[in-house]
Amino acid sequence: MNRITATFHRLAAENRKALIGYITAGDPDYATSLDILRAAATSGLDILELGVPFSDPTADGDTIQAASQRALRAGMSLSRTLDLAAALRRDTGIPLMLFSYYNPIYKFGLDRLATAAQQAGIDGLLIVDLPPEESAPLRAALEGTGIQIVLLAAPTTRPDRLQMIASKTEGFLYLITRAGTTGEGGLDYDAIRRHAAEVKAVCPVPVCLGFGIRDGNDARRLAPLADGVIVGSALVNLTGADPTATDLPARFAAKIRDLRVGLDNA
């Protein structure tokens, strides 16, 4: 069974919520990033999303834009991200996802990516600017690899479209909590509660909430509304605030433990 699906089965049996972490791959550099990811994988995350840096991240706010720029300056790319995943996969069984824009994937070659991602131990892909209507070539390439394509839904997604997305997403549904780009804050609890309930009613797989979640307190409040939470900018910002700090892995571990405690106390 796919590691993502197996993880949600285990969490459901334990009556717990999923904590999913997004971390820009190669930020601030390859070696430090590998240390950060190793620490993150053993500090309470259930699923790890590796952000593939892209020069023009139109769905991202300042924090992840800056992280992408740092990683690109340090020579990061999709192929190096796959190297990073393969290195991680050697010492952890945590589900690994690639979170990417489409162009690096397309340019890499869809068939080549399917093989390389499978070899690197990738379990899922989330391509932020690849709506289901444009995803047939990627789906064809991934056939037989067991790699899942996770889709997003937004507060602006209309009901008929939501049905379509809910029926096509694999592993889980990434439900965006608010309009705009990635970043911390701006959460409207009541609006999210109503929206999450509507989405859960039509979605056959787990629903996880992402965008805007800052800390354990946010995680604790949002956890009851869905099957898990996704935290990105609040993690990436640890590097952004102090890219040359020598204890970044420990800072990530501490932040993830705070989120975990919040989530488990919901």
Binding site: V128, P131, A154, T156, I165, I176
Partner: peptide
């Protein structure tokens, strides 16, 4: 039409 879901509608 390759855009994020937030812009789709």
């Amino acid at each position: 039409r390759f855009v994020g879901e937030t812009l789709m509608s």
